[in-house]
Design a protein around this nucleic acid. Structure first.
Lengths: 225, 225
DNA sequence: GTAAACACGATAGTAATACTATTATATATG
DNA sequence: CATATATAATAGTATTACTATCGTGTTTAC
């Protein structure tokens, strides 16, 4: 078992770095499987411990609680997306093209062929779609934000902001547009799967092409030329 | 104690109609106060029972669990918004003006002077901003959706969809735009208050004017003319 | 090569949560 | 006045979200 892509995450997310031991890696790999299966509310450390033939107490040595484990997983995802965008921007100079590429990646990064990891990226994507808003919709947001626990997400949004500023320096709402696109990439898929009257798009068999089209429509029309 | 605005909500949201008894009304009024104060995760029926000098068992006679109580509260809010929009559309024929009005109301309905209720509308608005996505981000979405528990929200979105269709019959993404605007009305405020690098707007002292402006920018620019 | 440090598993225990059930009493209804 | 109903009071259960302690096997340091 190995996580070949090693991303550097905020140390305050964990008590012991899960990327540094085989138990730690098992915790991450299996928590992705279990959270996707049970949903975050029904996911417990006890159930996870059982899956990996370990104990609750051992998992608690890595993560203070399941909320921080979820935040770790989300942060891993955002950090990975950021990295995939950078790779795919290599040698691209045109900002419009860069925007299209970045949109395609947040719509569905799991097709990326360069990533080598034991984390199931499709399951992780499903978790992000279904659970991501829960990491900041808590009474602890401000405290966790002060510790820098949301920096990765904000950095990813900034990436879009910089592009919008390059494409149209006078556009008044680059941050709103960036955060809205990031949200859409999750919520519209969720609606397509569960509340389809709230969207016009379809997502069947991991085909996110319609999502990508809508996101481009939003981005390019709002930013103007 | 009385809830003068009586909205008709899906019967499957509750075991006993909280609008039909004084205990029921207390449950709703105080749960709004408590959920806003504690956040949904730390809110419990035991704490609520204590606040209203009642018991857990009594509250369980009204609501199966706290999730359905939250959904009830959210549904009340959306139903109320829908009602406020209808009132404010009275005698307005211009679709652009109707859209502006509807946007202003979802940005901040609590200014509405016609509503007479013991529910604290500003606190309720805060709950919607912080907790609304939790009502459908569960493993029960599909079951609850089949029971019609999200009809009020979908109906509200449809209202926008119909407007977009009237304004531009060839616009390809009316549902995406509707659900995105509804989401923005919560998320952008949350960002302004807690993760302000994710937004360009400011919301200070319940002044939602900048939110309204951004939402109009999105709606009118995307829908075209 | 051995001692110390460490990681992990095993076990136990606690307070709180999310309920369910039963009974007694007060109140409303017919 | 009898009855039905709503609620309060109480008790109890399984699960959750932890915390603490201890023993053992493995790694690391010198």
């Amino acid at each position: 078992m190995s996580i070949d892509v090693k991303l550097i995450l905020n140390q305050k997310l964990f008590l012991r770095d899960p990327q540094e031991s085989s138990l730690g890696k098992k915790i991450i790999i299996q928590s992705v499987v279990l959270i996707e299966k049970l949903g975050f509310e029904l996911f417990t450390f006890k159930k996870l411990a059982h899956e990996i033939n370990s104990t609750e107490a051992s998992i608690y040595r890595y993560f203070e609680n399941k909320h921080l484990l979820l935040l770790y997983i989300m942060t891993w995802y955002w950090e990975w997306i950021d990295y995939v965008i950078d790779i795919n921007w290599n040698n691209i100079d045109d900002d419009k093209q860069k925007l299209s590429i970045a949109i395609a990646i947040i719509a569905d990064a799991s097709e990326d062929e360069f990533t080598q990891t034991d984390i199931d990226l499709k399951l992780l994507h499903h978790i992000v779609i279904a659970e991501s808003t829960k990491v900041y919709h808590t009474k602890l947001v401000d405290k966790e934000n002060k510790k820098g626990l949301f920096l990765t997400y904000k950095k990813l949004a900034e990436k879009f902001v910089h592009l919008f500023e390059a494409l149209n320096p006078s556009y008044p709402y680059p941050r709103v547009l960036a955060s809205t696109l990031l949200e859409m990439s999750n919520s519209q898929v969720f609606y397509a799967q569960h509340l389809n009257r709230l969207t016009d798009i379809e997502v069947k068999r991991e085909d996110y092409s319609q999502l990508k089209t809508v996101m481009e429509h939003f981005a390019f029309n709002l930013i103007g030329k």
